[in-house]
Design a protein around this nucleic acid. Structure first.
Length: 356
DNA sequence: TATCCGTGGTG
DNA sequence: TCACCAAGGAT
């Protein structure tokens, strides 16, 4: 489909022409230039899942969620524990809590219809400046300045912005505004992200394939990957912790972590928060065995989690808050975050070779 | 503004 | 191998 007249051969025109032939086909998308707009619910759900998360990782989760909860009304009526378990493994679990809160707000406050404006969307839980702009543009065709990490990279290079992130963000946004067209708002936003994901990549950008190579200032300088300029990295501290695999009668004791903080709201093995290993008291007094250590890397620290296990002939009275006995054979369905899924794998191995 | 918040792929 | 990175938001 030809580009609409007003954009001509501007940056937007070059980009939209490229997008018409190179758009990625994704489950939450409509083809470039399509007359029909995509379902706002699916656009919103995909945008939440894609926050700081790769397309490849999101794929199976998007299929699972849209299959189980096809509409925002269905999602609003979902069992919260079931939804959190379905999100397990995708990370950033505050997104899952906000997902329910947002769906319920849409149903309760907006009659089950997503707000069609950037400002209306921005007021929803879990919807920030980027997501509000993206949904407004993609699902409703509103001209919005959509700035994510891809756009930051493309724009920093296109204009060779010398000052480092995050201080450069106002300038980046101002430049992004100047190249955002009045037409094909959703296609333009997705084209910028596709360009950043497949051509204008963080490392080894493919300038020979880039539709914006000609106007790109960073390419003219000869070192496009020098942009965006970033601040010096910080050292990642290391912590140690303990988790307990307490098994009895074919079931293992699980707890639910507090809503705030790491892995908030998710099921876990008992064992504390890894801040002070001395406070990680076992759930019951028993002859515990150290069966292994799980190494895990989070965004701002790494962790060595020692797994202690015991198998008792009967279930003791566990005083842990919000504790539940979960069948060992069904542990895969508990929705454990990755750290505890790895710990549970050690626990099962222990279970198979240890008599009660 | 700076920090916190997961995970898996990759060059 | 490992530091970097990914369609950010809340506080």
């Amino acid at each position: 489909m030809p580009v609409d007249m007003p954009v001509k051969q501007s940056v937007a025109g070059l980009l939209l022409d490229w997008y018409d032939g190179h758009a990625r086909s994704l489950p939450w998308r409509t083809p470039p230039g399509a007359a029909a707009r995509p379902d706002p619910y699916r656009v919103w759900l995909s945008e939440i899942m894609l926050q700081q998360t790769t397309v490849a990782a999101v794929g199976p989760y998007f299929a699972k969620f849209t299959g189980r909860w096809p509409t925002v009304k269905a999602l609003a009526a979902a069992d919260e524990a079931e939804l959190m378990a379905a999100w397990a493994g995708l990370g950033y679990y505050a997104r899952a809590r906000n997902l329910i809160a947002c769906a319920r707000s849409v149903v309760r406050d907006h009659g089950g219809i997503f707000p069609a404006t950037e400002a209306g969307l921005r007021a929803l839980p879990g919807v920030g400046a980027y997501t509000a702009a993206a949904v407004a543009a993609i699902a409703f065709g509103e001209r919005a300045v959509v700035v994510d990490a891809n756009v930051e990279r493309v724009v920093s290079r296109l204009f060779a912005i010398p000052d480092p992130l995050p201080g450069s963000r106002p300038r980046i946004r101002a430049h992004a505004d100047t190249i955002t067209p009045d037409v094909r708002a959703g296609d333009f936003a997705q084209a910028m992200m596709d360009l950043g994901a497949t051509v204008c990549t963080a490392r080894n950008p493919r300038c020979l394939l880039c539709p914006l190579a000609d106007p790109c200032a960073a390419r003219a300088e000869g070192a496009p990957d020098r942009y965006p300029v970033k601040p010096a990295k910080k050292v990642r501290p290391h912590r140690r912790g303990i988790a307990y695999w307490l098994e009895a009668d074919g079931a293992v004791l699980l707890v639910r972590r507090p809503d705030k903080g790491m892995l908030g709201g998710m099921r876990a093995l008992p064992g504390g928060d890894w801040a002070d290993i001395a406070e990680a008291a076992p759930p019951v007094a028993a002859a515990w065995h150290m069966i292994g250590t799980v190494e895990h890397v989070f965004t701002h620290f790494s962790l060595s989690l020692d797994i202690h296990a015991v198998r008792l002939p009967g279930r003791p009275a566990a005083d842990a808050v919000a504790a539940e006995w979960w069948p060992v054979a069904l542990i895969e369905e508990a929705g454990l975050p990755t750290l505890y899924a790895h710990a549970a794998a050690l626990g099962r191995a222990f279970s198979e070779v240890t008599p009660a």
